[in-house]
Design a protein around this nucleic acid. Sequence first.
RNA 1: GAGCCAUUAGCUCAGUCGGUAGAGCACCUGACUUUUAAUCAGGGUGUCGAUGGUUCGAGUCCAUCAUGGCUCACCA
Length: 500
Amino acid sequence: MSSQEQGSGATTSELAVRRAKLEQWRARGIEPYGGRFDVTHRSSDILRVADARTREELEEQRLSVKVAGRLVARRGHGKAGFAHILDQDGQIQLYAKSDAIGQDQYEAFELLDIGDWIGVSGYVFKTNRGEVTVHIEQLTLLGKALQPLPEKWHGLRDVETRYRRRYVDLIVNPPVREAFILRSKVIQSMRRHLDAQGFLEVETPTLHTVAAGAAAKPFRTHHNALDMPLTLRIALELHLKRLIVGGMERVYEIGRVYRNEGISTRHNPEFTMMELYAAYMDFQDIMKLTEHLIEQIAVDVRGGTDLAYDGQVVHLKTPWRRAHMVDLVREQTGVDFFALQTLAEARDAARTHGIEVLPSHGFGHIVNSFFEEKVEHTLFQPVFVYGHPVEISPLAKRSVQDPRFTDRFELFIVGREHGNAFSELSDPIDQRERFEAQLQERALGNDEAHEMDEDFVLALEYGMPPTGGLGIGVDRLVMLLADQPSIRDVLLFPLMRTQE
RNA sequence: GAGCCAUUAGCUCAGUCGGUAGAGCACCUGACUUUUAAUCAGGGUGUCGAUGGUUCGAGUCCAUCAUGGCUCACCA
């Protein structure tokens, strides 16, 4: 094996055959990596036009088309042959006949390999069996494939190869292509509905000097010219709220965030968040906004609100259930944290129920641990869980009823968190204290506690209107709507360890 | 980070008790002018993930490593 063939997929001989064909094309005076091609129809356009006509009508009209795509199947019959090409919309059959296109063009047709990009011009007809087919009049090689494609029947199953060579996965596994088209539609729909409500889409920095806005370990990097440490953002939150201070009353951003943490079926180091902030709203308003947004997206991309997920049915018809975190914990465990007043009581309850308590854990952390351990996985149908403890919510406004808790909610669907929202903390003095409490946690060993963001506190000192904010994990929403069990199935290029 | 599982032809997979590797598709040669996973005749193209070990002999047994998957941990 020569060095340039190292690591390639195919056997030396199959590669050699295709390389030889490359030279045969050149010998015919044809450059195998061609130039532009005027496409008049996608495969779906041809099917739509032809389906509306009978065989006889098509024969009379001789509708001319130019279509391009990747050769994915071919069946030769001596001096004639059929083929299928795949374009972004799907497949269309081609028919080549030596009598009609001449010996030279027919030899070219026979020289093609599965995987080659071609353009054809011809006319549309229906075969004896009724399949809409383009009768080739002119064949153009647009791009030679040197690697063979996986098998037509079983496709590509090997999960590792599917992720590492997503381009092959997209070619041979149609449901994969559909899932990513759906992803695009989800984001499109999200934008449309937010834009319609007067939200302004903005872009904020991904290189941050302070890793705040979420509890997560950041990626660290460095700017050479300024000789300055930087982190990749772990959230969009604090910059978007600065814009609220600046008087941009409704803003949102759909963007990548980065967290230097474990990888699982629900976590990738980089993922897509949508965060929005709306002046004069509170977390109750955001609940309504959230459920309607997701309901509308589901209708847009799935045509309804009852969705199959993992063999069960999720009902996304609004309104959704609202439940206080403490009430849910009481339902599942009988422990009523409204009634417990001291940290000691909470620790006792945790010991009784086998909940681990770390030294840095306060009352609120214990409530949260109960929720995560005992409740979270039970929440299959959509539910807004509200009233998170203040200790785990350093950016949320305290609840007027009980200042140990906040006006915050998380949205759970299929046992997973899909969104996080609150009435934003706008009191700069309280905000500074919350950051300081986070720094103390950090000192006690929680390296995911927030860092102090002095400039953000300064912004709040200029005055922020009452504001409701929301973050939605876009990847998880796509997983839900596409009925995919792993985040890697909705990320085109999930992070993989490098080989060798 | 831990446990379990997987890794054999380009792809999808067999491979029994340890005896020097097989099928289908793809590919190659030939036949065939409306096929549909086209068909017919012929051809096996391989560092059995890697490295050690046990053995007369290892795809198979053992150890280590690599990569991946799942579960757990982590991750609001």
